[in-house]
């Protein structure tokens, strides 16, 4: 019934010939500028590192520190066992992460319900996040890890792996639920109005319109939380499981040397540095997408 309204939006032909054009004055300038910045950064970094390398060994205690923290032979000997123990950390991380995501999302949704019938749910979710956000993770682990097995339950139910993981899940789901909640609240009211005006119910609006957009928005901060989780898994060592930190402690006692701790730190860094770089990359991409080009 409506006459066909054609769109004369011919895809631009500009993009094609731009590759063949010689560099513009600005491009030449920017390239030179960039090369200069790079050289300066390189030179100053080398100077600082060189200074450190030259000066630290001059300190009176250096040879002792070197022997007990940076001991090559001990590192060689303990590293494989550390790596094997680290597999445990990764396993714990892998089963905690999905539980945290699901629980965190449920809590965030609970805090958003407005129905008076479900008020107790909202209250519970609020109390839950307040409590577990307010206690240091390490205390949650100690309390649950030593407290619950004290109930004297049988075999699988008294495992420190289980209760250590539960403690991590409780603590981190409260952090993650706050991230989700912020994401849900950041979706503009007009999205809700648009959906409701079509006859979608509250829960359909939440499920199809609000949550999918919220999740997209919170992926970078979520990944930050999961990098922290990766590290905090090591805290479980306090209640027994032999994961990397515990293994390092055992080796430390065995060799009376701190090098195994340095080895454990190296293993963590090998995993967390790429992770944090990736999150930074996602975040800056999101920033660019939402706030246009950077201003000089």
């Amino acid at each position: 019934m409506v006459p066909e309204m054609s769109d004369h939006s011919g895809t631009s032909s500009l993009s094609q010939d731009s590759t063949q054009r010689p560099l513009s004055r600005r491009q030449v300038f920017e390239r030179r500028q960039k090369r200069r910045s790079l050289l300066i950064a390189l030179a100053s970094s080398l100077a600082v590192i060189g200074l450190l390398v030259a000066l630290i060994p001059q300190t009176p205690g250096w040879y002792k520190v070197k022997r007990s923290f940076f001991n090559g032979p001990i590192l060689d000997e303990t590293f494989p066992a550390l790596l094997r123990a680290f597999v445990k950390d990764i396993q714990i991380f892998l089963w905690c992460a999905p539980c945290i995501l699901v629980l965190g999302m449920l809590l965030a949704i609970c805090r958003n319900v407005r129905s008076p019938l479900l008020f107790p749910l909202r209250l519970f979710a609020a109390a839950y996040t307040d409590i577990f956000r307010g206690i240091p993770v390490i205390l949650t682990i100690l309390l649950i890890g030593f407290g619950v097995p004290g109930l004297g339950m049988d075999r699988p139910w008294n495992s420190p792996y289980l209760w250590g993981s539960v403690a991590l899940i409780l603590a981190y789901s409260s952090y993650v639920s706050e991230v989700f909640r912020a994401g849900i609240e950041s979706i503009h009211e007009s999205q809700r109005a648009g959906a409701r005006s079509l006859g979608l119910s509250t829960s359909q609006t939440l499920r199809h319109i609000i949550i999918p957009q919220a999740i997209r928005r919170v992926i970078p901060p979520l990944m930050n939380d999961f990098v922290s989780l990766q590290k905090d898994v090591a805290l479980i060592s306090l209640i027994g499981p032999i994961e990397i930190l515990r293994q390092a402690g055992i080796d430390k006692s065995k060799y009376a040397n701190f090098t195994p701790y340095v080895g454990a730190a190296i293993i963590f860094l090998l995993l967390t540095i790429p992770e944090t770089r990736f999150v930074d990359h996602l975040m800056s991409r999101e920033r660019r997408r939402t706030s246009g080009t950077a201003v000089r």
Binding site: Q191, G194, R196, S197, L198, P212, Q213, R216
Partner: peptide, 21 residues
């Protein structure tokens, strides 16, 4: 319940508020 009523009444807003995802 407003939902059945809204199905019969369409509304278009000043700011388009399409679903961006």
């Amino acid at each position: 319940n407003p939902d059945p009523v809204r199905q019969r009444i369409g509304m278009v807003f000043q700011s388009f508020n399409l679903f961006p995802h």
